[in-house]
């Protein structure tokens, strides 16, 4: 029997859910990728998935945009948090998003199988 001492720390996820103002969805997605995503990647985030609901661009109603990012572990989460939380350009970006959105959520998650290890600190 062998043991694996190189088991990776549990990955964590940051999820942005943005309900765009009517007609703004496509432009907001484009700006997110152009203005926010490069800096987020520099802060250690990996963009895993983008979802658009409904799967068509609405002119008179809201599209919901969902971005799922991954981070290597909780330590990487804090690194992202310290850098992004002290960057005025990041704050300005979110202020702009909030002006173009009906609502917005950011939440953090993991796979259920990783919960026990994440809580064992």
């Amino acid at each position: 029997m062998t043991t694996d001492d190189t088991v990776a720390a549990p990955m964590v996820h940051a999820i942005d859910e943005i309900v765009a103002k009517p007609g703004e969805g496509k432009a907001l997605l484009s700006d997110y990728l152009a203005r926010y995503a490069p800096g987020a990647r520099a802060r250690g985030m990996t963009l895993e998935q983008i979802l658009v609901s409904p799967p068509m661009w609405l002119d008179d109603q809201s599209n919901t945009l969902v971005f799922r990012w991954s981070l290597a572990d909780a330590g990487a989460w804090w690194q992202m948090r310290f850098v992004g939380g002290n960057d005025p350009d990041v704050a300005a970006w979110w202020a702009d998003v909030d002006a173009r959105a009906v609502s917005r959520r950011r939440f953090f998650a993991s796979a259920p199988a990783d919960i026990e290890r994440l809580c064992d600190v």
């Binding site: 948090r81 939380g85 990041v90 979110w94 909030d98 917005r104 959520r105 950011r106 939440f107």
Partner: peptide, 10 residues
């Protein structure tokens, strides 16, 4: 808890 402190969280 940190969402109350995080400028990236609404």
């Amino acid at each position: 808890i940190d969402r109350w402190f995080d400028p990236e969280c609404p």
